[in-house]
Design a protein around this nucleic acid. Structure first.
Length: 480
DNA sequence: TTTTGAGTTGTTCGA
DNA sequence: GTCGAACAACTCAAA
C-alpha cells in the first residue's frame, strides 16, 4: 500500500524539475499538495502587494494544473508548523517534503517545522530546487564565501553542470478535509484595483513561465547583449517573477540556454550575458545565506555612518514618479502601473534615490518590495546595497548615474519616456530628457508647463552629484 | 606569507 | 562629435 507524503509548496509553484516531488514518485508515494499562507512567520518580509497579486494567480494556475491530474491543491492559512502537524495527523503521513528556502526567516521556519513535526514522529525532508548550486557548495579555494561576483560565477560555471531532474505525472493523494479557496485570501487588490490590466502584461504559472522562456530564446536573445539595456524594447526575458515564485527553475533556464549555446555559436556572447543574470541571482542568495543581515544592515560596516538626509517629500516624489527627471519618472510609473521596471531603469532610479536625493537605500528596498511582482529578498536587498555602494562588490562611490545621459543613451527616441510620462509626449527628442532646458516656445508648443503639469527637477544634477560625493567622503573618513 | 591582477552596468573633462 | 584618462583607493582571490 502506498504511503502519503505531504508536499509543502512554498516558492516552488511548479510540477517539473522538483526534486521533492521526484523523490516521492521514486518511492511510489502519493502526494498531498498544500500551500500555507503564513504571514506571521515571514513578518516584515511577507509578500508585498504586487507579489500577492502574482501569488494569487500563480496558485490558481497550480491548483488548476493539479486538478487536471486528478489532485487537489489544499490551501490553508495559519502557522505552518501547526497546519502541517494537523494534516499529517489527519492523513497518517509520516513525511513532509519541501523545497528549501534561504531567507533567514524561512530557514528558521524550517527548523521550527522540523522540530514540531518530530514530536509526532513525522519527518521534514528538505530538497534543493530553487538555485543552480546550494549555498556553501561554491567557495573560494580557502573554503570562504566569495565576496566578488566574477570569481564566484566562474567557480559556479566550473562546478558540475546543474541538470533538471525529470519526473512523470504525480500520483496525487485524495483528501476531502477542509481547505480555503483562493478568493478567501483576498490577495488581489480592490478599491482601488491598482492591478487592473496586469493580466495583459503577465501570465503567472508554470505554463506562462515556459512560454516566457521559449519566446525569449526564440528571438530576443539574439540582441540581448545590447538590447537588454533598452527599456523601450522587449528584449529582456522578464522571467524574474516566474523564477521568484519557482514556476520555473534556474536549472531549467540554464539547461535551455546551454542547449541553445551548443546550437548557435553566434549567440555565445548574448547567452553568456543572460546566464550571468542567473549568476547574479545565485550570488545574491549566496550572500544572503552567509550574511543574513543584508536586508537590514550595510554589508560594509562603514556605511552605517553614511549621512543620509531623510526627506519625506523627496521620497514621495520619487515613489510617485514626480521628480522632474523624465527617465526616473518613467521608471517609477512603469513600476506602479505594471508591477515591473526594466533593469536598466532600476539602476537609474535607485542611484537617483540614494545619490541625488540622499535617501536611505532601505526606503527603496521597501518600496520595491511592495510594488514589484518579482520582489525577492535576496536580489532586492543585495542590489540596493550594490547601488548604494554599501554592498558586496558594490558600485564605486563615484559612479553616479546622470539621469539625462542615461535617458539619451538608452532611450534615444524617447519611446520609453513617452509611454510612461505622456504629458511630455509632444516634446521633441532633443529636450525630452531635459525639459527644463527647452526654450519657452518649445514648451508651449508641447503644452508642457513645468511646475504645473510636469514638475521642475526637484534637485539640480550637478549640485546633487557634488553633495553625494561629499557624503561618501564622510564614509571614507569613518572607515579610517 | 606575500604579491599581483582584477573588479556588472558611469561621468566628466579636456584634447 | 569622439576618445582616453582620471576619478581614489581598496578588497578580494589566487598564484
Amino acid at each position: 500500500m502506498s504511503e502519503t507524503v505531504i508536499h509543502w509548496y512554498r516558492l516552488d509553484l511548479r510540477n517539473s524539475d522538483l526534486p521533492a516531488i521526484a523523490a516521492a514518485q521514486r518511492d511510489g508515494h502519493k502526494v498531498l499538495p498544500v500551500y500555507i499562507l503564513d504571514d506571521v512567520a515571514a513578518g516584515e518580509w511577507r509578500p508585498g502587494g504586487a507579489s500577492r497579486w502574482w501569488l494569487h494567480h500563480s496558485l490558481q494556475a497550480l491548483s488548476k494544473a493539479i486538478s487536471q491530474q486528478g489532485g487537489r491543491l489544499l490551501l490553508r492559512r495559519g502557522d505552518s508548523a501547526e497546519v502541517l502537524r494537523e494534516l499529517s495527523e489527519q492523513t497518517g503521513a509520516q513525511t513532509v517534503h519541501c523545497t528549501r528556502r534561504y531567507e533567514p526567516w524561512a530557514a528558521e521556519q524550517e527548523s521550527l517545522v522540523r522540530d514540531k513535526l518530530a514530536t509526532g514522529g513525522v519527518s521534514l525532508k528538505r530538497f534543493p530546487g530553487s538555485l543552480l548550486h546550494e549555498p556553501g557548495t561554491v567557495l573560494t579555494q580557502g573554503g570562504e564565501p566569495f565576496k566578488v561576483f566574477t570569481p564566484f560565477w566562474r567557480a559556479s560555471l566550473r562546478a558540475q553542470t546543474p541538470v533538471p531532474v525529470s519526473h512523470g505525472p504525480t500520483a496525487w493523494a485524495d483528501f476531502s478535509g477542509p481547505g480555503d479557496t483562493i478568493e478567501d485570501w483576498q490577495l488581489t487588490p480592490r478599491a482601488p484595483d491598482w492591478a487592473d490590466g496586469w493580466e495583459e502584461h503577465w501570465s503567472p504559472g508554470e505554463h506562462g513561465a515556459q512560454e516566457a522562456l521559449n519566446s525569449f530564446l526564440e528571438a530576443p536573445i539574439a540582441d540581448y547583449a545590447e538590447g537588454r539595456n533598452l527599456p523601450a524594447e522587449a528584449l529582456t526575458s522578464r522571467l524574474s517573477p516566474h523564477l521568484h515564485h519557482g514556476e520555473i527553475s534556474p536549472r531549467q533556464v540554464f539547461a535551455a540556454s546551454e542547449a541553445l549555446r551548443a546550437q548557435r555559436p553566434d549567440w555565445e556572447d548574448a547567452l553568456r550575458k543572460f546566464q550571468a543574470e542567473l549568476g547574479w541571482r545565485e550570488f545574491s542568495y549566496h550572500l544572503l545565506h552567509f550574511f543574513p543581515q543584508i536586508p537590514e544592515a550595510p554589508f560594509k560596516a562603514a556605511f552605517s555612518k553614511f549621512p543620509w538626509a531623510p526627506n519625506s517629500a523627496y521620497l514621495e516624489a520619487w515613489q510617485r514618479g514626480q521628480t522632474g527627471y523624465p527617465i526616473v519618472d518613467a521608471g517609477m510609473r512603469e513600476l506602479w502601473q505594471t508591477g515591473y521596471m526594466h533593469n536598466r531603469v532600476r539602476m537609474v532610479v535607485a542611484s537617483f534615490l540614494c545619490k541625488h536625493l540622499l535617501q536611505h537605500w532601505r526606503h527603496g528596498e521597501d518600496w520595491f518590495w511592495d510594488t514589484l511582482v518579482d520582489a525577492d529578498l535576496a536580489s532586492n536587498s543585495c542590489s540596493w546595497q550594490w547601488v548604494a555602494g554599501s554592498g558586496a562588490d558594490a558600485s564605486p562611490y563615484f559612479r553616479i548615474f546622470n539621469p539625462v545621459t542615461q535617458g539619451e543613451k538608452f532611450d534615444k527616441q524617447g519611446e520609453y519616456v513617452r509611454r510612461w510620462v505622456p504629458e511630455l509626449g509632444a516634446l521633441p527628442d532633443k529636450y525630452l530628457h531635459k525639459p527644463w532646458e527647452a526654450p519657452q516656445d518649445v514648451l508651449e508648443a508641447a503644452s508642457v508647463r513645468l511646475g504645473d503639469n510636469y514638475p521642475a527637477p526637484i534637485v539640480d544634477h550637478r549640485e546633487a552629484r557634488q553633495s553625494a560625493l561629499e557624503s561618501y567622503e564622510h564614509v571614507k573618513a569613518e572607515s579610517n
